[in-house]
């Protein structure tokens, strides 16, 4: 592998890692802070992608369209959806054991998939990137890099910084972290923990849906797209340390590099390399790379 190929592959790795982070950070919030094993997280990603596909024509009918307008609408809709979902289902799960959480969230996956099938059908659909991001940057004499992929990376970095700041520098972040350490104590200090959790959950859903919407023009939308991303997201969360945003970022980038270079250097083992990485890191640090709340 020559130097320029190596650089391009590194770019691919970072871009894939950042996208993983975007999806996994929402899971890390819900799983890490609230302690709920949420198998339906992949479905929120799928819902986001289908929103990008289904919402765009509606938004353009009412408001004259625009990619950003669709994104904003999608995020608001999914946050509201997440808020209601927490109220109706997840708020009953905090005190139950993990098996019941797994059962209910698995049930939700089936429900979401069936609704998707009824509403949109089972075909694969493409989503067009906005025209102002359709260009590309030449990398080598035969290969170019689509501008839209750079846009995805920029969005991911912005979100990572935003989440980090909210988490470590604001009062809201402090309350969330306190709640994750000791729920009862935080409540007795006069903080409405129920409402707080509902907001965190809504944010987690909105982030996953946002990831789906942003990724849709590259990944296209199809049945079962949530399932594949869910597993790798759990790997990210476990490697990075449950409930750590910083850990999720580092783990995503690690997986991005291992996956990208693994496919080229060790194609025979590409399918398991990520899991080997997880096993090695867990042997070295059984609780993941970072502590919760960082």
């Amino acid at each position: 592998m020559d130097y320029s190929t190596f650089l391009i592959q590194s770019l691919n790795a970072i871009q894939y890692g950042l996208l993983l982070f975007l999806v996994a950070s929402g899971l890390s919030l819900i799983f890490g802070i609230m302690g709920v094993i949420n198998l339906a997280h992949g479905s929120f990603y799928m819902i986001g992608a289908y929103l990008a596909f289904g919402l765009a024509p509606i938004v353009s009918d009412i408001f004259g369209g625009g990619f950003i307008a669709t994104l904003v609408f999608g995020v608001i809709a999914s946050a509201v959806f997440g808020y209601l979902l927490e109220w109706a289902f997840f708020s009953y799960l905090y005190t139950r054991d993990h098996l019941q959480q797994v059962l209910m969230t698995y049930g939700l996956i089936l429900v979401f998939e069936e609704i998707r099938s009824l509403l949109i059908g089972d075909e694969v659909h493409g989503v067009k990137p906005p025209t102002w991001l359709e260009g590309s940057i030449p990398l080598t004499d035969v290969m170019v890099y689509p501008t839209y992929r750079l846009f995805i990376s920029a969005m991911c970095i912005a979100l990572a910084i935003g989440m980090y700041l909210v988490f470590t520098k604001t009062k809201l972040g402090m309350m969330i972290r306190a709640g994750s350490v000791n729920r009862e104590m935080t409540q007795s200090l006069g903080i409405n923990i129920k409402f707080l959790y509902r907001v965190v959950f809504a944010a987690g859903v909105a982030i996953a849906a946002f990831a789906g919407m942003v990724a849709a023009p590259v990944s296209s939308v199809y049945p079962g797209m949530g399932g594949g991303i869910l597993i790798i997201c759990f790997v990210v969360v476990v490697i990075g340390g449950i409930g750590s945003i910083k850990g999720a970022l580092v783990a995503s980038l690690l997986i991005g590099f291992v996956d990208t270079f693994g496919k080229v250097a060790l194609p025979e083992a590409a399918g398991v390399l990520v899991y080997v990485l997880m096993a090695v890191i867990l042997l070295w640090k059984p609780n993941g790379l970072f502590k919760a709340g960082t």
């Binding site: 592998m1 190929t5 391009i8 691919n12 871009q15 080598t140 035969v142 290969m143 996956d259 080229v264």
Partner: peptide, 9 residues
């Protein structure tokens, strides 16, 4: 993406 880079090279 990584395979496409291989092909381009």
């Amino acid at each position: 993406q990584s395979l496409l880079t291989e092909i381009a090279a």
